[in-house]
Nucleic acid binder design. Structure first.
Lengths: 195, 195
DNA sequence: GTCTATATTACGATAGAC
DNA sequence: GTCTATCGTAATATAGAC
């Protein structure tokens, strides 16, 4: 942090450019040429900072996964009814999604063509299962309705939460982070219908 | 339909193979070589049936969009409270998603790199707005909770419904179509929590 | 309808100058 | 740290035989 203005790239700053392009065009739809144009440097200069395209992907999804797993680490220390802890986890998921929006977006679109992508999918599955266990515990404590299967409910809740990356934009024009997390928690636990 | 066994391809039968590969590898991650291996014919033979890769995409997303818009055509003739009509539309969306699973899956993953993709995104937006209008009408009739913004609620409901393509498989092992549509309708309108 | 062979372009990555 | 030039490969698509 000794230089006031940074006009040369580090792996980190290059990553933020690359992830943006990946999310616009898709990872497979993005060439090194696209990245070089977006970053304003030549293709070969990119290789000075990172080993290649896949390293950028690995760094990006790692960052997303670290944010998500940190939720479970916090959660581990908490007490109280599972349903309340689940509500907290859902709210934190929304917060992490928004805080690390481009990185989580990329993570959620990974298909599994390369080794890095398959590793990311595996870790995502781990995370999903940990949250599913919490929902299962809440059901065992009688706080979750009995007419929806737990595995199915988990998937649908993940679907709603994860879909935020498809439309949330951090400009002031749309909903705020708090409005989104409130809406998700309300819909997930109480639904749309007026009482 | 004069031949008993069909061992030569039509655009339709080729499409079903192609869409499956597109969904496994992603559209951009799928080469004509991949398609030729999966179809068991050479690359050039594929060009005998279709003009190219993008035509396969166009046919696939058209089929998905036709299924979705048919819901609105049915809906148009219906009467009753908007909330009930919305519930019916949500249920029908799940049914169409499952009936046309690979085609809708591909539609929902389109990014917008080509003309065909941008056209698909536009038509999707049209559909979303039509459903959003129905939710707005239900809110105006007082049947939707007032503490969640309508535009936000629409997006989250779409997120939950659309996420079905990420895990639903039509083998007998998982949930049935009816179990899924029941679960979605229950969660969307009443939420997870036991009463 | 399907094939082999190939034209042409685009891609990821490297070499080496400055 | 960035560049131009280029290598080798893989991509879409076509030509023309059978």
């Amino acid at each position: 942090m000794t230089t006031a203005k940074r006009d040369t790239y580090t792996p980190e700053t290059l990553l933020s450019v690359a992830v943006q392009v990946f999310n616009e065009r898709g990872y497979d739809g993005t060439s090194m040429e696209h990245l070089s144009k977006a970053a304003g440097i030549s293709k070969s200069s990119i290789y000075h900072h990172v080993a290649g395209k896949e390293e950028l992907l690995r760094r990006a999804v790692s960052r997303a996964l670290d944010g998500l797993f940190a939720i479970l680490d916090e959660e581990h220390a908490r007490v109280g009814r599972a349903a309340d802890r689940l509500e907290h986890v859902v709210r934190r998921m929304v917060e992490v999604l928004i805080a690390e929006l481009p990185y989580v977006t990329l993570l959620l679109r990974v298909r599994g063509n390369t080794h890095t992508e398959r590793w990311a999918l595996e870790r995502r599955r781990d995370f999903d299962h940990r949250v599913a266990d919490l929902l299962k515990a809440a059901a065992a404590e009688g706080d979750i309705r009995g007419d929806v299967e737990v595995r199915l409910a988990t998937r649908l809740v993940f679907g709603m939460v994860n879909s935020i990356v498809e439309w949330y934009r951090p400009d002031g024009r749309g909903a705020s982070e708090r409005e989104v997390s409130d809406a998700v928690v309300r819909l997930v636990f109480s639904g749309l219908r007026a009482h």
